[in-house]
Amino acid sequence: MATYRLNVNGRQREVTTDPSTPLLWVLRDELKMTGTKYGCGISACGACTVHLDGVATRSCVVPVSMIDDRPIVTIEGIGADPVGRAVQNAWIDKDVVQCGYCQSGQIMSAVALLKNTSNPTDVNIEESMGGNLCRCATYVRIREAIKSAAKQVK
């Protein structure tokens, strides 16, 4: 057990846990922030995507001991960011969600994409969203919502 100070959505949080605990389970079980989802535990589905130092990161494979003071942004905090809010609004406007379980991760990946590429092509979208699995397969509307959000952000 060790104690870590984490910067989550702009707030300092302290957790005491085993150093091997993935960030995903620190968020969910220690900080009770369940918007970040467990889907596979091996970085293969993207449901656990958060922003670590601004980079879309699979939180299921990052041990808490590796984080240090790098800022963490989760789905609960992404609405405070103008791009994040635009993506969430586009998701609602385009009625993207079905079961919704993967959508936290989809939104986090989409925000990271739009922060780097303000006007993404289909290929950009396929590359950036390529590791985010949606078993409902809402991909057509995800694509549409990203393009719609890109217009809003401009």
Partner: peptide, 21 residues
């Protein structure tokens, strides 16, 4: 008609069975 469950599923507030505490 847009879904009633969209917004909470887009901001992480929906509690699925796995999120129960």
């Amino acid at each position: 008609v847009r879904r009633l469950d969209s917004k909470p599923k887009c901001n992480g507030s929906t509690k699925f069975g796995l999120d129960l505490d």
